[in-house]
């Protein structure tokens, strides 16, 4: 464990908590892409299948449980509890264009052709593009609530910090995982446009508005 990975996990956890609280407190999932949350639930499910078979540490196991539980709770709130507030007309990104290519790629490019490894690889590839429906929805509605932009910022920063974690691990542990690194780079690049808007607008107290 290193400071970058720890801060990254904290950032990821806070993004998940921010979103849960936003929906629960406001009893509304307006502006939130249910499709992205569905993709995140798939990412965590396919990545943490070794949750019960491969104990790494109490921290690792408890974080995985929190991630899986909160992602399902978020999907449940969007598609069931508060589905009246779900803005389906603007959440129209074709997720099959994300799931199919990443699934095929995980069969072609992986470290080991075994079910667990292919599912792990699929979850890494899918996570790198899972935010696209949400970013697409924000660009379609032309703006996002401030709390949603904080959620997106925390979510984007988490994988950016993981990039530094991988530099650290390459330097000091002679370890690197090209699949995770390349996917993490793609994931971070997808946020660049949003990071720019967040830093130039939201941090100045303005509302986040994208040129529609």
């Amino acid at each position: 464990m290193n400071i970058f990975r720890f801060l990254g996990d904290i950032s990821h956890l806070s993004a998940i908590i921010i979103l849960l609280l936003k929906i629960w407190k406001s009893r509304s999932c307006a502006g939130i892409s249910g499709k992205s949350q569905l993709l995140f639930a798939i990412v965590f499910t396919t990545r943490y299948l070794d949750l019960f078979t491969n104990f790494i540490s109490f921290y690792n196991t408890s974080m995985k449980v929190v991630y899986v539980a909160s992602s399902y709770a978020t999907v449940w709130m969007i598609y069931s509890k508060f589905k009246a507030t779900y803005d389906g007309n603007h959440d129209t990104f074709r997720v099959e264009f994300l799931i199919v290519p990443t699934a095929i790629l995980s069969f072609l490019v992986n470290h080991d052709f075994t079910p667990l490894e292919i599912l792990w690889t699929f979850s890494i590839y899918l996570e790198s593009v899972a935010i696209l429906p949400q970013l697409f929805m924000v660009s379609k509605t032309g703006e996002a609530e401030t709390i949603t932009s904080h959620y997106l910022f925390a979510l984007g920063i988490y994988r950016t910090l993981y990039l530094f974690n991988w530099i650290w691990r390459y330097q000091f542990e002679e370890f690197f995982d090209l699949i995770a690194i390349v996917a993490g780079l793609v994931q971070t690049v997808l946020y660049c446009d949003f990071f720019y808007l967040y830093i130039t607008k939201v941090l100045k107290g303005k509302k986040l508005s994208l040129p529609a």
Partner: peptide, 10 residues
């Protein structure tokens, strides 16, 4: 040979 380091990561 890329070590699959990322398995102990979240």
């Amino acid at each position: 040979e890329a070590n699959t380091a990322a398995k102990d990561e979240l």
